[in-house]
């Protein structure tokens, strides 16, 4: 499994209130949520983003609320992967559970700039910066989480396994 797209870079502590402000939480429709994604931190994000693009951020991405609307909005906006130094734990769980690929890689975050062309191989954890010609080794998911991601989310995983 691979993803390819341009990078949109952000700083530390991008919180769920800026990813999807609470004023839009009266909706559960992914497309509607996507239309307001990142609105309070980057007004033009949704106009600029193309299918396959990636979000690259520093520490503690997705901190704050447990709203699954945040990874849902990001995924529905067309983002193929979020790369960060670290993720807030509920956001991390939610992303895996809904099948939004995410990866921790401080080295990649340090070097990647806005609009760099990035390629991510989820099986190996290799992040390739095509613009700069550099390569970084991201943290591949533990096997248990890979199973959930391969099943495209927790719901399918549960349907396929003996959890029930």
């Amino acid at each position: 499994m691979k993803a390819e797209g341009r990078a949109f870079t952000y700083g530390n502590n991008v919180d769920t209130d800026v990813i999807i402000p609470a004023r839009y939480l009266n909706s559960t429709d992914p497309r509607e949520l996507a239309s307001h994604c990142m609105e309070d931190i980057d007004k033009e994000f949704i106009q600029k983003v193309k299918k396959g693009d990636m979000i690259v951020a520093k520490k503690n991405f997705g901190c704050g609320s447990s709203r699954e609307h945040a990874p849902i909005a990001i995924k529905a906006a067309g983002i193929s992967c979020v790369i960060a130094e670290t993720f807030a734990r509920i956001f991390y769980r939610n992303s895996i559970n809904i099948g939004l690929p995410i990866m921790e890689c401080p080295e990649a975050v340090k070097e990647i700039e806005d609009y760099d062309e990035i390629e991510v191989d989820f099986d190996s954890g290799i992040i390739y910066n095509k613009t700069k010609g550099t390569q970084y080794e991201g943290q591949a998911f533990p096997p248990f989480m890979q199973k959930i991601i391969k099943a495209e989310g927790l719901v399918n995983y549960i349907n396929q396994t003996s959890l029930l």
Binding site: S66, E68, R93, N94, L154
Partner: peptide
């Protein structure tokens, strides 16, 4: 705290 999918499960 967890998200909605964890809650569903």
């Amino acid at each position: 705290g967890v998200g909605s999918t964890d809650m569903a499960a």
